[in-house]
């Protein structure tokens, strides 16, 4: 990276911020009847690990997921009907979680933009 200012991941608080966000976020998702069927009925520890990877990525942190990984990982969910409305709901909870953690609005917007950038890969478009 040519930019020498601290990364979003560092500014937002690194791994500790991810850990704080993940459980809040996952509770919101599990209680949301629009989308919880995509997130429940499975191994909870694995789900938490996946949400952790999602937040790490959204914060621009260390991750090695490629667009193809995103497509492959979500393909079974797309088959079950995953579409834009569900992605929107997830984005809603991402924002609400970070707001609840009192992350400044500008940083939330940066994180949301990164998460938004994988929309088409996640939805297999």
């Amino acid at each position: 990276m040519s930019d020498n200012k601290a990364s979003l991941y560092e500014r937002i608080g690194g791994e500790a911020a991810v850990n704080a966000a993940v459980e809040l976020f996952y509770r919101k998702v599990l209680e949301d009847h629009r989308i919880n069927r995509f997130f429940s009925n499975t191994n909870m520890d694995e789900q938490i690990a996946k949400q952790k990877a999602f937040f790490t990525m959204s914060f621009g942190g260390p991750n090695s997921y490629t667009g193809t990984d995103m497509r492959n990982a979500h393909a079974p969910l797309v088959k079950k009907g995953l579409d834009n409305s569900h992605f929107d709901a997830v984005m809603e909870h991402l924002g609400a979680t970070l707001t609840e953690l009192k992350v400044p609005g500008a940083l939330i917007a940066e994180a949301a933009a990164i998460a938004e950038s994988v929309r088409n890969d996640v939805l297999g478009k």
């Binding site: 690990a49 952790k52 990877a53 790490t56 260390p62 991750n63 090695s64 997921y65």
Partner: peptide, 8 residues
């Protein structure tokens, strides 16, 4: 998978 200590 991740080689970053995330996916376990």
């Amino acid at each position: 998978s991740c080689r970053q200590g995330v996916c376990q």
